[in-house]
């Protein structure tokens, strides 16, 4: 049986028909062609699929698409506003917080949740906040710097 769903994705109301078993990440990637949200594992471990569901960082591989009916979803594609990069996106570029780029969308979405709840995180707090996101390229060193860079800019201090 298919379910009709309506999800506000990046400010736009999107309709779709999904099987009950369909995961939100699949809905985003296959139905909505929002392929910035990635799939890196099948055990809800790696965080590459992290999006915001009603404002909270969520692994979109561990939510059914039908559960997102009526919800607000933000993906990496919705982070820049009017062509201007989100400070986290800018931070990742400035501090070389990405190499292959595959984990990056999830990292940015998780970091956005962190900074929303803790605008001035310590290095230790940043590292703890990233425990659900695996990066195989950077050794996390510059990801930490990128988030610090963004935190400074978001607090009105020039990094």
């Amino acid at each position: 049986m298919k379910h009709k769903i309506s999800v506000n994705i990046n400010g736009k109301q999107c309709e779709g028909e999904v099987e009950g078993r369909e995961l939100l990440v699949n809905f985003l990637r296959e139905h909505q062609s929002l392929t910035g949200t990635h799939i890196g594992c099948d055990t809800s471990s790696c965080g590459a699929c992290t999006i915001h569901l009603n404002g909270a960082a969520t692994k979109s591989c561990t939510v059914l698409a039908v559960q997102a009916d009526g919800a607000e979803v933000t993906t990496i594609e919705g982070m820049a506003t009017n062509g201007e990069l989100h400070p986290l996106q800018a931070g990742f570029k400035e501090e070389h917080g990405l190499q292959c780029g595959f984990c990056t969308p999830g990292m940015i979405m998780t970091a956005a949740d962190l900074l929303k709840n803790n605008p001035n995180p310590s290095e230790h707090e940043i590292r703890e906040a990233l425990e659900g996101n695996i990066c195989r390229c950077t050794g996390y060193h510059n990801i930490v710097r990128s988030i610090q860079h963004a935190a400074k800019n978001m607090n009105g201090v020039t990094a």
Binding site: I76, A80, F92, K93, E94, L98, G101, P105
Partner: peptide
């Protein structure tokens, strides 16, 4: 020099 390839990756436009 900051990486020119970053733009597509940080905006979710990489094509894997």
């Amino acid at each position: 020099v900051k990486r020119v390839e970053d733009k597509r990756f940080i905006t979710g436009q990489g094509k894997y």
